[in-house]
Structure formats: C-alpha cells, structure tokens
Design a protein around this nucleic acid. Structure first.
Lengths: 342, 342
DNA sequence: ATGCATATTGCAACCGATTGCGCAAATTCG
DNA sequence: CGAATTTGCGCAATCGGTTGCAATATGCAT
C-alpha cells in the first residue's frame, strides 16, 4: 500500500470544493472579500485534510526564507552553546528558523558555510568569526546583496559592521582592580592569539589598568598562546620561570585557566596561595572544580546571543521594508566579575 | 544610492545574451545539447555576474529542501553539543543543511518545533526526545507524510521506528563488573525518571548483572530522580542514610555524579574511599575535576550523531527514489567504560 | 427598467529554475 | 541530391501559493 500520502495543497482543496485556488487562499487568510459560507467550507475542509501551507512556496514567492544563519567556531565551548540558546529562543519566538554551522576555527570552512547560507537565501546571518579568519572579503560580499550580518563576541577588524560584544577592556580592568585589592602587585596575562580583536582589547585594557595602579609594565609577564593546552603549558612554564614570578595570572578564558592551573599543580605550585587566577567566561561547571580561578568574568552568552538575534531581525525588517538605514548597531555589553572565592 | 544589488538570475543572463533561460540553465549544467560556444559565453557571464543559483527555487521545484531538522533537549549538555557536531559534519559533507531546535525538555515546545519543521518541508528529522514526552502522536503524524525520522539516544517507546542508541544494558553491566572486580558488593543506582526508556534499560541491566554476580537485590539501593541537583541531593541523602550504605554508586550521568559527589563531600563522606562512583557520559572536563567518578561510560555522542545522520540521509534517498523499504534501522552502539582512576 | 454601488469569485501572472518536447538548421549517409 | 540523423536551441508547463484586476451577481434607489 504505497499510499504516498502527499501533503494537501490549496489546489486540492479548491478542486474538491469546485472553487478557484485564489478563493481558497483568501478564505484561509480571512480575506474580507470572501463570503462567509465559502470561508467556512474552506476552513473546515482544510482542517479535515490537515492542510498546512508549504512555507517553502511562500518564502519562494516572497523572496525571504524566515530563516537566519548562525556561524560559530564550535558548540563544544560552553559560551557558544549558551549563545545559540539565546539566539534560538529569540528566533523561534519570532517565527524564524535557525540554520547553523560550525567553522571549527577554520577560515575556509567558514567561507563555505557562508556560501551555502547565501545560496539558501537566508534573511540574515549571525557570525562569531573563527580564530584564523583574517580575510573578510566573503563578509563584504554579502553586503552587496543586502543580506545583513551581525557579528557577536568574536568581531572582525572591519569598519561599518553591526556587532555586539562584551567590553573586554572594562572586564580586564575590573579583574585587575580585584587582584590589586587583594594585594597582588605582579600580575601575568595569558592571552590568546594577537590576531584576535578580543585579545588586543584584553591587552590594551591590561596595560591601561596597570598604568592606573602605577604598576610597572613588564613585557615578559604577558604571553600569547593559540589557546591549545600545549601552548598554555608553555606559557605557564615561561611565567613560572621568571625571577619575579607573578602572584596572579589573568587568563584568556576558563579553559585556558584550567590548563594553566593543571600545569601549575604539576609543578607543585600551590593554587590560590603561591599563585592566583582570574579568567573569562565563568564556566558553569566550575562550581564542581576544586582549584578554580578566584573569579571569572561573566560575558552573558545567552543574553548576547539573544540581543544579536534581536538586532539581526531588526535589520532584516528594515531591509525588507526598503528603508535600509545607514546606521550600524555597535553594542557593548558590560561584563561582570563573578567572584567565586573571596 | 539604493543600488538594491539583487542577485542575478538565469533570466537576466538569458536576456543579456539574447538566448532563452532554458539554454542558460542547460549551459550551466554542461548539458550535451548545448553548443560549445554558447556554453562558454554563458559560463563566462555567469562568473562575471557572480551568479549563484537560488537554491530555494530549486528545492521548491524538486520538492525537497536538502535540509534536515534536528530536535534535541538542549545544547548545554555536552553530550548533545558533541552529537550535533557529528550531525552537522555529516550533513555538510553531503550538502545538507541543519535546522535545529531545542525542546528544553518540554513536550509542548518539542511539538511546536516539529510542526515548524514539517511546514518547512525538511527532508527528514532527527530527534532526541524530551524527558517529558509521553505522547508520540506528533511523530506518528509525520510518517503519514513520508518524512523520515531517526531517533537517537533518547528513544520513544514506539514500534516501527528508526533509532540509534547506546546499549545501556551492556554499559551498566560493564560498570558493575568493574565495581565488583574492585571488591564492591553493595552498589547503589541513582537513575533518571522512570518514564525514560534509557532509565528502564539501565534498571534492567542493573538487575540482571546483580543476579549474574549473585548479589542480593535491595530495592532501596535504587533511587529515581528527575536529574535536577535537588533531586540528586535527596537521592544521595537516602542512599547515605541506609543502614548498609552502598560502597559504590552508579549514577545516570556525569552531571548527576558531580552533584552526588558534591553532596557526599558536604556530608564528610570520603570520595573513592568511603564511596566510589561510576557514571555515564564521560564528560570531557572531568580531567580537571578533583573528585571525579572512578569511571564513566563513554557513549560516543559525535559518532552517534554522525551515524544517525547517515541513516537519515539513507532514508531520505530511499524515499525520494520511491523505493521506501519497510525495514527499520535499529542500531545499538557498544558503549565503552573509560576508567579514570585505577 | 435603468443605473450604480457592493459583494463574491475567478483569471492569470508571478517568484526562479528545470525539463519534456518540438522545431529548425547543419551534418552525414545512401 | 534527397533522406535521415544529429546538433542546438526555444516554448511552455511545473512546483504551491499570492495578488492585482476583471467579471459576474446581487441589492437598492431612481
């Protein structure tokens, strides 16, 4: 019995009722020009047949898909999986669908995903760029086709873009303030790759706040890594071997902090005694972890994702109503230092 | 300058070249019936205009979307974020797009997402059902429309379905074998809600393996929770207050284990001395955690997701070639006990 | 009966690409 | 040289809804 139970269409309803498809369409939309009798007959039959409009046909005609693309480095980082929750919640609430892809921090793959999404004619795109992305041509390309993009958290060094991110300068300043108030004078920084804007911001904030506290700037206290475990180990080795070893270290994020702490423990350095840590991200699981950073800078991924989507949908609507404003949304969220251990 | 830079269409290319759209289409597909000259002219102009076919139009015509829906409880659990990585990798490699939604363990929302995806005419759906789903009508509904579904990890109690999951009975047996070999005779089980199939399997496996080892069945050693922290605390309290307190506990997963361990520590019970733990999921972060379960059952989420997608695409192809087989794929993966502490 | 406004409904084009079929010109063959 | 075949290309329908406009019918006033 290959019943091939196709989904019912407007035409089928029309045929059964001996009326035209346009009447059916209007009846289903409660158009005023349709008689009450026909309306009721159409709606009744539609319900009986479990008719559901083919959204694809509608989107195709209206030349929008009611779907947005989300490209992020990976979902295994808790920051991004929280962010996408916020993104998805907001999208669903506004009847948008989410198409997503992970770049795995590979610029090539990022470009491919972007291309796929463009061909799918998503109404807009949300991106947190990969670590390795240095060429932004594929993003510029989209602008030509009026597909709005909103960047979040990981922002490219481009002008005239929409973005939302945490104010990392303020964040790191708060972190240093906290450490100084705890009596630390010699503070190290394990930063990420210099190519990332977020790292440049951390660095700038770090230098500024040291100046504010009249602490001397020691370049060897600042180490860049590629965020891998190995790289973090090397950074820690370098910091621990300094003659004036830092009493506190600020790390790029909690994952890096965990690696750094693991290495320090291996070297018999007492955590939160010989050396203290503060980092970014505020990993939810850290409440289960013994030797955790003293504090971590919460970047509100869920809220950031939600707001990013809100902006994107605003841009999509503007574009659709052909009143494309030339203004860009540049939103900076205030991070919050979550103190775990007083 | 509202350049309204629309994406070029086949018709535009045709007009500029003074030929028909069909010729352009065929030329772009290297159809044999098109002269070499026209082919080259078309392809050249297409490249110059950066023509990209409107996938939506194509999908609409071919009545498939080359996209699949993925519904899972949430992405914050590392199991699911790994799974979706596998899903996405396989999908991308086969030129499919992934549309996804989180049910947040809410059956209503699960149904809504399913409905949205149906209306979007996804080619197939991958589901890991929510904790609270007990009515499966919306899934049965999809079958009528020939939209294939593959369930993974969290399987509904339905017949005639496609699914892939870990053999949890085997897993828990391995876990008990391991604990018995360590000398444990009194083993507790903190299970999830009884409504979940996965919990029933754990329970069955647990009872069977106790019988195998000739250990006495003590019902009070088996506790059900709703997986919340509070509920786990209560479970631990119950277990710890037994007169013959278990020397080892198997928990539903690592998150539950962490809560249980946290509670035990609060009660001054020495972890891995007074009481040992074994659990499911093999959380990646646990290498950083001090008091971790002795062992955890790896369920290979990435592979599971990948295979689930593989099966789904197979079903989609079968359906499209109208040779729908009546066979269901029921795949059981062997889990692996990862021993962290010997 | 005629004129005019209003209430219902249908026709047909459209969104962008694909594809069966037909037609004409060019080529090959007997 | 005429017939058969091949080569190259266009017409038109199609996917499933939407929508401007035309058409018909009905009601009401004059």
């Amino acid at each position: 019995m290959s019943m091939e139970n196709k989904m019912p269409t407007i035409r089928e309803i029309a045929k059964k009722l001996q009326i035209s498809p346009s009447t059916v369409s209007r009846a289903l939309h409660n158009h005023h020009s349709i008689g009450l009798g026909t309306k009721m007959r159409v709606q009744e039959l539609a319900k009986k047949l479990q008719y559901e409009p083919n959204q694809n046909a509608i989107f195709f005609k209206q030349r929008r898909t009611f779907s947005v693309g989300v490209i992020l480095p990976n979902l295994s980082e808790s920051f991004f999986s929280s962010a996408i929750s916020g993104i998805e919640d907001f999208a669903i609430a506004h009847h948008y669908k989410v198409l997503f892809g992970q770049s795995h921090d590979d610029a090539i793959r990022e470009g491919q995903i972007l291309e796929t999404m463009k061909n799918f004619r998503v109404d807009g795109i949300l991106v947190s760029i990969s670590k390795s992305t240095t060429n932004y041509d594929h993003f510029k390309n989209l602008k030509k086709y009026n597909i709005p993009i909103v960047f979040f958290d990981r922002i490219p060094a481009m002008s005239n873009i929409n973005y939302i991110a945490c104010d990392l300068e303020a964040g790191i300043q708060e972190a240093v303030d906290f450490l100084v108030s705890k009596g630390h004078q010699c503070i190290g920084l394990i930063n990420g790759p210099n190519s990332m804007l977020a790292c440049k911001e951390r660095l700038r904030g770090f230098k500024n706040v040291l100046k504010k506290h009249n602490l001397k700037q020691n370049p060897s206290l600042i180490v860049s890594t590629d965020l891998s475990q190995e790289s973090t180990y090397q950074a820690m080795q370098k910091l621990l071997s300094l003659k004036n070893r830092p009493s506190a270290v600020i790390s790029f994020n909690d994952y890096v902090a965990l690696d750094a702490i693991q290495y320090a423990k291996k070297m018999k350095v007492k955590i939160n005694k010989d050396i203290s840590f503060v980092s970014f991200a505020n990993l939810p699981l850290s409440s289960y972890i013994e030797n955790t950073p003293l504090a971590s800078i919460e970047q509100f991924p869920y809220e950031q994702g939600k707001m990013a989507m809100e902006i994107l949908l605003k841009l999509v609507d503007e574009g659709h109503e052909k009143r494309a404003s030339k203004l860009n949304y540049n939103i900076s969220l205030s991070p919050k230092l979550e103190i775990r251990i007083q």
